[in-house]
Amino acid sequence: MENQWKTEIDRIRQATGLPIGLHTCAAHAWERERRRFEAEGGEVVRWAADQHAVWYIGIPRDAWPEAARALLPLLLPPPEREMTIQQQAINWLTSFCSGRTEPLPAALEAVWQWREPRAVFLLTRAHADRPLELSQWQQLLADFFPSPSAQHIWLLPLSAVHLLLLVPVTALPETEPAEDDRAMWLDWAFGLHDLLTTETMESVIVCVTEPAAHPRQLPQLLQKCLLLSRALQRFRFREMVAGTWQYPLEQWAASLDDATREAVRRSLDRMGAMTLSPDQAEILDALFAHHLNISETARHLYLHRNTLLYRLDKLKDQTNLDPRQFSDAILLRLAMLFQQNA
Rank of each mutant, 00 (worst) to 15 (best):
M1F: 08
W5E: 12
T7E: 13
D10Q: 14
R34G: 03
R34K: 11
R34L: 06
A39N: 15
A39I: 06
G41D: 01
E43D: 11
Q51F: 07
V54W: 01
R61S: 12
P73E: 05
L74T: 14
L74R: 14
L75Q: 15
L75E: 13
L76R: 07
P77Q: 04
A89W: 00
S98Q: 14
A107S: 03
Q113M: 05
E116H: 09
E116Y: 02
R118M: 08
V120A: 04
R125E: 03
H127C: 07
P148G: 02
I153E: 01
L164N: 02
L165T: 01
L166M: 05
V167T: 06
V167W: 01
V169S: 07
V169N: 04
E179H: 09
M184L: 13
L186F: 05
D187I: 10
W188S: 04
F190N: 09
H193P: 04
T197R: 08
E202M: 10
E202H: 03
S203W: 08
C207G: 12
V208K: 02
Q217D: 08
P219I: 00
K224C: 09
L227Q: 13
Q233P: 05
F237Q: 14
E239S: 13
T244G: 03
L249C: 11
S255D: 12
S267Y: 10
M271F: 10
A281N: 11
E282C: 13
L287R: 02
A289E: 12
E296D: 12
L301F: 06
L301R: 02
R311A: 00
D322C: 10
R324L: 13
R324N: 03
F338L: 15
